[in-house]
């Protein structure tokens, strides 16, 4: 391809990405060195915001919480998505309907899905889950105030909203796997697990990598679900990084825009570190 052609083809996209993403990013970096609030000019304070962020114990606990949730949720997403995809793939005429039903939770916005989810667990709204728990005689679970119960609740809500995507992409990947291989795995009882593990899953490695990558990105940004599902996230140590940034910097009328921006920059660094393996792969693949 001639260089001119390449330029013409790429230019609009590059302009949009750089104009609408890089310029705002530069602004964020600039703010991160200032003491600033919306609508008024800031004053340069050097690395103060970064120092504030890094010495705040809440920041550390938010990082820990976010990383742990990301690892746990992504594992469930990949394994669960795989199992669901295999099950759905085995369906006949029912497949489109089942697939349509399973996609519903993916298309509901996170905040709203989170709220619907919370009503299942909240006694003030007649939470059905608690009724069932009572019915079978299990002890009461404090879904919103107990740290681990709440973590389970939040993780479940995130899995609920994201597993359809994982399932869908893996299902698409399974279409490329020879039918005989899948049939064999389905019929051969004890050996089927091994077939999946050692033959089928490796053959769609690329797909699984893609699912993992997208899931990591999305769970690291966890925010929407926490608003309805964790009303006292701060107190029970279930504050995600984005929620922390939102709480610290923007809840109070954007008074701490500088601090919030510094935290955003740190979060971006964390994301880049977690994505490094994928970035390396991309670079390698792009050159070939």
């Amino acid at each position: 391809m001639r260089r001119r052609e390449y330029l013409y083809l790429v230019a609009p996209s590059v302009l949009v990405m750089f104009g609408l993403l890089v310029i705002p990013l530069v602004r964020t970096i600039q703010w991160s060195f200032e003491r600033v609030r919306y609508g008024s000019p800031g004053t340069f304070v050097g690395l103060d915001n970064y120092r504030d962020a890094l010495t705040d114990p809440r920041f550390g606990s938010a990082v820990a919480f976010t990383v742990v949730v990301t690892i746990a949720v992504v594992s469930v997403l990949v394994v669960g998505g795989y199992v669901l995809a295999v099950l759905v793939n085995g369906l006949g005429k029912m497949r489109p309907i089942v697939l349509g039903l399973l996609l519903v939770s993916y298309v509901v916005p996170g905040l709203i899905g989170g709220t619907m989810f919370s009503w299942l667990f909240n006694d003030n709204f007649g939470g059905i889950v608690n009724q069932v728990i009572r019915l079978v005689g299990l002890p009461e679970v404090l879904w919103f105030t107990d740290t681990w119960a709440n973590r389970g609740l939040v993780a479940a809500a995130v899995v609920w909203s994201m597993i359809p995507f994982a399932m869908l992409v893996i299902l698409a990947g399974l279409q490329g796997v020879p039918k005989e291989m899948l049939e064999a795995a389905r019929m051969d009882g004890a050996g089927s697990l091994r077939t999946h593990w050692s033959v089928i899953a490796p053959s769609i490695r690329g797909v699984l990598g893609f699912v993992t990558l997208i899931s990591i990105m999305d769970v690291l940004r966890l925010f929407d679900q926490l608003i309805p599902l964790s009303p006292q996230a701060v107190q029970i140590g279930n504050e995600s990084l984005v929620l922390y940034i939102y709480n610290r910097a923007f809840l109070d009328g954007g008074q701490q825009l500088g601090l919030g921006s510094a935290m955003n920059v740190l979060l971006i660094l964390l994301i880049v570190v977690m994505l490094l393996p994928f970035i390396r792969d991309t670079a390698r693949e792009g050159r070939s």
């Binding site: 705002p24 940004r221 990084l241 954007g254 825009l257 994301i271």
Partner: peptide, 8 residues
Amino acid sequence: PRTAVVLP
């Protein structure tokens, strides 16, 4: 993260 670009 959305906040890093949307606030500016």
